[in-house]
Structure formats: C-alpha cells, structure tokens
Design a binder for these strands. Structure first.
Lengths: 199, 199
DNA sequence: TCCGCCAAAATTGGTACCAATATCATGCAT
DNA sequence: ATGCATGATATTGGTACCAATTTTGGCGGA
C-alpha cells in the first residue's frame, strides 16, 4: 500500500482532522517512508483535493466546504443516474447476486464493524454496482468524486439510523435492478446520494 | 506559467508525439527548470493521464485509445447536457454577448490562426458557456476531461470542414441559448461533442 | 499587563551527489 | 552471418545536505 493511501485512510478515519497540518517529518516517521515518497504522496493528494498545499507552509487537510460538497454530490447524481440504463442492460443474475452479497456484508458491519469498515463496505457495494456500466471511465470518475466528499464522513455517517437507512436503500436498489426498473433505480440512487435530512 | 503547462502545451501542439519518452534532462534544459520541478510536473501530468509513468523507465506521452476517448466523450455529453438547464436559467443578455464574442474570436482564428490557437479559442468558448452553470465543480470537471481527449487533437481538428462545422454549431448553441430552448441546446451540444463522422 | 520586536528553532523546498536499473553497442561463440 | 552474452553508457530515482522562509518563545518597552 502506498503512502498516499495510508494518509488518505488516516484522513478518513479522522486521525488527521480537517485543517491539520501534515508535517513531512511526522509522516516520514509514522509510515517509515523516505522524504521524497512523502512529498509525492502529498502532491498526489493535493491534486486529488484531499489536502491543500500552501507554499512555504506545507500541506493541511482540507476543510469541508458545504457548498462544494453539495455540488459534488449533484455531480454524482448526474453521473450515477446516467449510468443506470447501461447497468440495467448488463445486470446478469450472477452480477446481481454479487452485489447482493456486498450489500449483506455492509449490513453485517453495521453491527460489528468500525465506521471505516462500514465506509469501505459501502464503497465496495457501489463500486460493484457501477462496474456493470459499459463506461469504465464513469466508474473511475465517480470513485474519484466520492473520495473528495468522504472527509465529511463523520457528519454523514454519524447516526445509526442513517447507516440503516443506507442499508435499506441498497436493498431497494437491488430490487429495482432485479425488476429491470431503470427509473425506479434512478430515483433511489438520487435519494441515496442526496441523503435528504429527515423531516 | 508552470512546467506542467509548458509540457502540456507542447504535447497538444504535437512537439511531443504520443509515445515519446520525456527525458527529465531534456525537459530541464528545454524549459530551464530544476530537476524537482520537472519531476513534479511529470507526476502531475501522469495523474492527469496526459503522460504515463513506467518505473525505472520514465514518462512517455500517452497513446490515444479510441475506446477510452469515446468513453470520455460520453461523460462529457452526460455532464454538459446536464448543465444546460442551469445554464439557460442563468443566461443574462450580457453573458450571451460575452459568449458570442468568443465564438467570433474562434471564427477569426479559423482563417488566420494556428491549430493550437483554434483549440484554445474553442476551449475559451466552452469554458465561458459552462461557467453559467450554477455548479462550478462541473466546470472544472469537464475542463479536466477535455484535457484528456485533446491529445487526439490532430485527428479531430484535421480538416477545415470540421472546424467550420464546429463554428456553425457554436452559433447554433448561442441561438438556442438566446431562445431559452434547453432541449435544442442539449441536442446541439451532444452532436458537437460526438462529432459524428460525415456520411 | 499587554503589545510589538527580535532571536532561536523548526519546517519546507531546492541542490548536488550517488546508487540502481535499463538501454545500447561491441565482441564472442555457434 | 546471426544470436547471445557482456560491458559501457545513459537515465531514473533515492539520499544527504543546505538555504530560505515561517513559526515560536522570550525579552523589552509602553
């Protein structure tokens, strides 16, 4: 696993809170990598907009911007609903079963997993679903976008109720996919991404 | 202007043909920058998928993959048509006039400009049009995607006829925008991006 | 007591150098 | 003559070091 992945994971897990300055020396000792590796990783993450670079100051974890995350979520709605027709067209019974397995994996982790594990299981579910789309670039693009909103992980996934709601929506997606109901699937995905605040 | 921009420009201009190995020493001398700057630029461009990194071999300009570019073009169709409703809603008369000016600028360069100038004028036109969308992230995302397909610049922009067709479509877009005809604008944009091969 | 200035420590970012690896050319054996 | 091994060369990539900038702590003055 690369340095960038390790840092990204720690950012998501909350080890490095938003706004924290990531000092190269600390990262060097923490992950036992050389200075150039650390700097490349920070540049990489800066380009991915997970950290921000300030010349002669260093790199710090980005502060979540609610407007910006809202815009990114809208992009995901656009892209993931656009993928639905192709997904439905390529949804073989085996593929659906594979997705269902990942949904159940997510369900299990609601009770006995850490927030990070839940997050990654959720990622795996959506990744598998989107991989049915005939456009592989869409998958990588959405994956990229998702990685930019997850720093607001604590906010979105805080409550048990919200996670259980996600689980229900996963199974609703599978049901709609099984029924080849594209419009229904689009609606669920839209709700799932937007995560409307309850009442 | 940064090293990455300079390299990117030379790649688009065809100075560095697809497949060419970009040697750090050469770039260092060509642009009069230090080694670390060159390496950062190459890493940056590799992340942007303009060049490819092979460990212990170096960086080479990506070879255009027709399937991949087709997929990226489809993503642009999805995103740019999705932006239309918002664009139409925010199209003030002044904004339309600004876009029209850029379209005319493009027209002029058809006759008296280099291919690179035409390319950049085209970019400016689309950038201005998309900037009307209420979602700024969409603009940056499409700009990013566009930068990945332009290495196939020679292929797409080769003929005078194709460039003039683009010009006509620009003005059709403005007309549809002026008429507040969102569906019409979407159709034109879709054709414009897909650039169907003439019979 | 609080504010501003100055020095010291720490961190970033760049330069030079060196090791590791790949490519190329030459020579040898078949 | 051709294929292969071997050594020379060039390029990449990492290590160590140093300069430049920023931050921190302390001191003096208002």
């Amino acid at each position: 696993m690369t340095v960038a992945d390790l840092i990204a994971r720690d950012v998501r897990a909350g080890t490095f809170a938003p706004g924290t300055w990531l000092k190269q020396i600390d990262l060097e000792h923490r992950y036992r990598f050389g200075r150039p590796d650390v700097r490349r990783a920070l540049d990489y993450l800066a380009q991915k907009r997970l950290v921000q670079h300030v010349p002669n100051r260093g790199y710090h974890v980005v502060l979540p911007d609610s407007d910006q995350t809202a815009h990114i979520l809208e992009l995901r709605v656009i892209l993931e609903t656009a993928a639905v027709d192709s997904i439905v067209a390529h949804a073989t019974p085996e593929a659906i079963r594979g997705i269902e397995a990942l949904a159940r994996k997510f369900d299990e982790l609601i009770l006995h997993g850490t927030v990070l594990e839940q997050y990654e299981a959720n990622l795996a579910f959506h990744h598998e679903l989107l991989s049915l789309c005939s456009n592989p670039e869409l998958l990588t693009l959405v994956t990229d976008l998702r990685s930019r909103t997850s720093s607001a992980l604590a906010g979105q996934w805080s409550t048990r109720a919200r996670v259980e709601q996600s689980s229900r929506e996963h199974h609703q997606m599978i049901k709609a996919l099984d029924a080849r109901d594209a419009q229904q699937l689009k609606d669920i995905i839209t709700r799932h991404i937007r995560q409307p605040k309850e009442r």
